[in-house]
Amino acid sequence: MHQTPPPNAPPPMIQIRHLRKEYGQQVALENLCLDIPRGEVFGLIGPNGAGKTTLIRILATLLEPTYGAVRVDGIDILDDPLAVHPIISYMSDFFSLYDNMLVWEYLDHFARCYRVAPSKRDKLIEEALELVNLEIRRDAEIRSLSRGMRQRLCFAKGLLHEPQVFLLDEPASGLDPAGRIEFRELIKSLHGMGRTVIISSHILTEMADFCTSVGIMEQGKLVAHGGVQEILKRLQSDTRLELEVAEEPDRVAVLLESWPGISAISTRGRRVSCRYSEPREALPELHRRVVAEGIPLISLEVRQDNLEDLYMKLSKHQTA
């Protein structure tokens, strides 16, 4: 499933070969092979139980695979897990902080854990707090923070040791819309800094916004992976049309049935939608024909498939 890199290409930041994880009789990951280049924001998409969390926990050295090889920045994480820790940052959907610490104490604790030099420690803490907009809560007790703030604090902790790889497991779950937007900006800024980010989510519309590539997981397998645009391009032929008429939607459906390249017609109220596989240049002719037939057309909308459609199509929406 992985592609052979061109000669002289820098080694991928993350290299996964034949990864398998079994929990008793249940197979959580099956023969997963994947290369993630440096600086990529890689989205892991899949339903609950697809194996996203298992994969991220293995990359974070919190879980041991049953079989396979995983290298992060060239380090075999199974042979030397402790050597990988300085270059990774991990954040999970279920996270907890030390409630009785102050915000700065928490960051100072982890700065010490990551052996940040004392001379740089205070500056880094201030910078991290500024990045996540928590500088005014510096001396607050963690228990007084809202969920969004706690999440940002957790994120700030992950920035302190300037890791190369961010492993984010459903990081935006539980955030309000404003929090999600802030979080999206944070991911974009990480991408701007050249960091590699692996992020799992099932909120696909958000993923399309900041991911440079995605992998779709289903029942422990990587169903498809690649650049977002590249994968979307695969479905370019499947443009969707939505026609809204003032009356007689059935006549539109009958007309569309006989039109070349039209499939999967469905009617809902006065709206008729279908898939269209012919070139876009042929659409004006369809429009003229509908009008010529005397059908009172209100609108004709051309929609490209998004990640959500892509996921539903590739995975056939099987739940693990």
Binding site: A60, T61, L62, L82, H85, Y90, S96, F110, Y114, R115
Partner: peptide, 14 residues
């Protein structure tokens, strides 16, 4: 219980 041990385990502390 709070799963903060995960963060400790993957910090650069042996």
């Amino acid at each position: 219980n709070n799963r903060t041990m995960d963060f400790q385990r993957i910090a650069s502390v042996s």
